[in-house]
Design a protein around this nucleic acid. Sequence first.
DNA 1: GCGCCCGGGATAGAATTTCTATACCGTCAT
DNA 2: ATGACGGTATAGAAATTCTATCCCGGGCGC
Lengths: 206, 206
Amino acid sequence: MQLPVRGIAVVSHRLPPLNALRAFEAAGRHLSFKRAAGELSVTPGAVSQQIRHLEQVLGFPLFQRLPRGLLLTGHGEALLPVIGEAFERVSAALEEVATAMPGRILRLGISPRLTRDPEGLLAALVGPGGAEAFIRVQPTDDVGDLLSGAINAVLRPGRGPYPGLQAEALDLHPAFAPHRRATLVTWPGLAQCREVRRARALLGQA
Amino acid sequence: MQLPVRGIAVVSHRLPPLNALRAFEAAGRHLSFKRAAGELSVTPGAVSQQIRHLEQVLGFPLFQRLPRGLLLTGHGEALLPVIGEAFERVSAALEEVATAMPGRILRLGISPRLTRDPEGLLAALVGPGGAEAFIRVQPTDDVGDLLSGAINAVLRPGRGPYPGLQAEALDLHPAFAPHRRATLVTWPGLAQCREVRRARALLGQA
DNA sequence: GCGCCCGGGATAGAATTTCTATACCGTCAT
DNA sequence: ATGACGGTATAGAAATTCTATCCCGGGCGC
């Protein structure tokens, strides 16, 4: 009895490469491989490759490449809402069920203008043990670090604007005194995930 | 600017490993790693590993393992319909848009009792060129070949039953004369995909 | 009661996929 | 004219996925 041969594209389900769909969804939402890469914490080359491969599997282009950014083709426009909603529903269901995903680490920048000791402040907020398991802070307020994928969110003074990003004004926890307000900036694709919501709850006033 | 470090599980989207979700969906639908493997054209060990990894990422079990087959846990039951529907929607959208996925090959068994020359018959049905691009026939009516993943569908005389599989009675194309009816058996996860539908249209009476 | 079959589990290593690093390109702003 | 920007291509590294093989416990047939 012959088992399936690797290396040829057999019909194994009705789905194309799923990681490539994830890259497509993020790139379609941002209309930018560079920004999708930042959100997914990979390099822009990785996203470019994934999309190129997906287009080959499907047999048509999904994007029209511009000098700065992308346009969706008709096929791309037809697919993006469906893929986006599917991922949204899966993600929401997992958020409901998976109270914690051990091993997932939120890399959070905290502006040096807000505290000189981000790790100390974090420890003060969460008490001993606990939250370090899901968050890792570093002293930066450079949105460029967020865009490049070096961090996943950044707490910084100032209101923005932050085009293409999700920014939320927070009333800061008293531990930040004398600072009272700041903005938590993250990727739209991460804004609703559990770790970001927990961070928001920790850093803000209850 | 520090790019993301490989090897640690960073928050990169709200989704766990997508291939593992695919394995979960198939295993959940069949309540069997073995049958899921058959549908996905991988080995049962691959499915077992994928699910085990997914359970580690999520932090809880999805299945209760039995000596013969599986039960879904409460978490597994909560997730399966959502994941299943999400994949269904994605798949349907892709079926709508992707009129052909170059490179996808349907491995079809045709019973030697229906024809001694399955390739010749296939050529007669499709005319020169064309369909070979998506279908590859071999002379077998062994449902075990389907179950093991060696083929994706089988055309055979007889009505079944075929528990856990999708079976459809066909009025055969006159090229099969004197045989007039047969059953096309495939996996439920493949039954609606384009290649299977095209095969059904080719083999049956218009 | 025993032996065999079955489906899941574990592990080592192979194969494939995904990613990074690097250099390149064309366009745009200065 | 030049530098910055975002996409592209490629080689090779790293990670993921898979296969092969052996093992296990439970169920079933004899």
